[in-house]
């Protein structure tokens, strides 16, 4: 059959649209994972035992099973309990929660490594525990954790390809659709890979810049 890249340009609009969806889903899921990660970390460290322990179990399950399996659970599970969300929302929630667990691990370590004296100092000036966490401890922990979270976000971008399996029309599924019409899998998956690669390079570039900033601010 051979390769023929001349068919690529006429379908590029579909691919580009898919690319925008991928960026949108990745950004939305990244936000979910970031704030979810902070909330999860606080629960895992400070919630009462009765909440903390089952929560840790759930975290453990999320880290010990494949993302794809979790996406199936969330997508079909929500339908089962009567919540019929569009696939892309399920995808964002699934990706977001999955990476929130990984971010939470990082943030927990960071919170614990923020000097104990910081919390005590905040309490002595009259802040409540919650205020001290929000205003003093967490901002410091988040700064420490930005570079490794950056790695998670780059992984998230690549894993966002999995939501194509539950029918979200992002880059991978768009490529699949075009392939359905053209029977040119090699060419169009390669094009999709190139788009992912470029986004990935941009993210790595941004990450390096942020890391340098942080290094300077210390």
């Amino acid at each position: 059959m051979g390769l023929d890249f001349t068919v690529v340009p006429e379908h590029l609009d579909v691919i580009l649209l898919g690319c925008l969806w991928t960026i949108f889903i990745a950004v939305a899921a990244a936000l979910v994972s970031f704030f979810g990660g902070i909330i999860f970390a606080v629960i895992a460290l400070y919630a009462p035992w009765i909440i903390r322990q089952p929560f840790r179990l759930i975290e453990w399950v999320f880290m010990g099973t494949p993302l794809l399996l979790q996406l199936f659970l969330i997508y079909f599970g929500l339908v089962q309990i009567g919540i019929d969300l569009p696939a892309f929302v399920a995808g964002i929630i699934g990706l977001g929660l999955h990476f929130a667990v990984y971010n939470s691990e990082l943030i927990q370590t960071a919170i614990l490594s923020v000097d104990k004296g910081q919390m005590e100092a905040a309490r002595t000036v009259g802040l409540s525990r919650g205020q001290a966490l929000r205003k003093v401890v967490i901002p410091q922990a988040v700064r420490d954790v930005i570079p490794p979270i950056g790695n998670n976000m780059i992984a998230l971008l690549k894993d966002s390809a999995l939501v194509s399996v539950i029918g979200v029309s992002e880059l991978t599924l768009s490529a699949q659709r075009v392939i359905g019409a053209t029977y040119r899998p090699f060419e169009f998956y390669l094009v999709a890979a190139a788009f992912y690669y470029v986004i990935n390079l941009c993210m790595e570039w941004v990450q390096r810049r942020i890391e340098r900033r942080i290094a300077i601010s210390r």
């Binding site: 966002s160 390809a161 991978t172 060419e187 998956y189 992912y196 690669y197």
Partner: peptide
């Protein structure tokens, strides 16, 4: 730098080409 899923698809679906 690219998704493993896409790499898999290129090999499996694009390989025969």
């Amino acid at each position: 730098g690219t998704p493993a899923l896409i790499q898999l698809f290129i090999l499996y679906f694009g390989g025969p080409q």
